[in-house]
Amino acid sequence: MYQEGYNKLFKGLIVVLIDIRLNNFNICPDILGYIIIVSALGILENQHSAYGKAKSFAIALIFFSIPDIYQANNILDGIGVSNYNILFMIISTIAGIMELVLIYYISEGIINIAKDRGLNELAEKADERWEGILVIEAIILISTPFYLNINIDIFAIYLLGIGIIAFIMHILFISLTKDIGKVLG
């Protein structure tokens, strides 16, 4: 029963991670991923209360992800600062913080269930993955406002580097949810 929840969680997190755009439309929108995550956490919340807390944030992220379906332009395209870009930056920052809390509660559930079952290595692995995501996402969230004052070319190179590291950290966390479904499900 719980393995189905972990499989859905894995799939939902993958959908959120993937960002494929066609003519400014996200053809794999985050909103679908968050709906799958809410469904998964609905199954898993009976296994640990942390999943119920995570579910609340996933529901909120459904609404915060709506602006991501269509973006008129990229904030790093050199067009300049506009009200749309600033509003999108604020919404993205709030959504980023909420996603971080979502990942925290998912990690907390995994860690506590693993410890209860005597799977200390698994709990430690989940904690390390959470801490890695926390550090990299904190760096991204803290640096985002500086976009307005930094040379766009330098900031784009910085974002590419930090983005690659963040992508790897998220892949490691997502793969953990797949593995945990086999053990804790």
Score class of each variant (00 low, 15 high):
2 Y>R: 02
67 P>L: 09
161 G>N: 12
184 L>A: 01
177 T>V: 13
133 I>N: 09
48 H>W: 05
24 N>F: 06
74 N>T: 13
96 G>Y: 02
132 G>R: 13
39 S>W: 10
170 H>P: 00
93 T>L: 14
35 I>M: 15
2 Y>W: 10
57 F>E: 05
85 N>P: 04
49 S>G: 12
14 I>V: 15
156 A>Y: 09
98 M>P: 06
52 G>E: 08
97 I>P: 08
181 G>C: 12
2 Y>T: 08
5 G>H: 00
108 E>A: 09
150 I>W: 07
71 Q>G: 04
36 I>P: 00
116 D>C: 08
62 I>P: 03
29 P>S: 10
80 G>E: 01
74 N>Y: 14
21 R>K: 15
70 Y>E: 02
33 G>M: 06
9 L>A: 03
40 A>T: 08
180 I>A: 14
68 D>I: 10
13 L>E: 01
154 I>F: 15
19 D>A: 09
77 D>G: 13
51 Y>E: 02
27 I>V: 15
7 N>F: 08
172 L>K: 15
17 L>W: 09
174 I>L: 12
22 L>T: 06
129 R>H: 05
125 K>M: 14
168 I>V: 15
176 L>E: 09
157 I>D: 06
103 I>Q: 07
99 E>F: 13
70 Y>T: 05
30 D>L: 08
167 F>I: 14
172 L>N: 14
166 A>H: 13
113 I>D: 10
141 L>A: 09
94 I>K: 07
59 I>T: 10
42 G>Q: 08
148 L>N: 05
98 M>D: 02
120 N>F: 11
28 C>M: 14
56 S>F: 11
163 G>T: 09
179 D>H: 07
63 F>K: 08
130 W>T: 04
41 L>G: 01
54 A>P: 10
38 V>F: 11
25 F>R: 05
115 K>M: 12
112 N>W: 02
127 D>P: 02
75 I>H: 11
41 L>D: 07
178 K>H: 13
170 H>R: 15
185 G>S: 04
82 S>Y: 03
65 S>V: 12
58 A>W: 04
173 F>H: 06
151 N>R: 10
104 Y>W: 14
150 I>S: 12
27 I>T: 10
108 E>M: 11
92 S>P: 01
33 G>L: 06
145 P>I: 14
132 G>A: 04
155 F>Q: 12
65 S>M: 12
166 A>R: 11
74 N>L: 13
172 L>P: 05
49 S>M: 07
1 M>I: 10
23 N>K: 10
23 N>F: 13
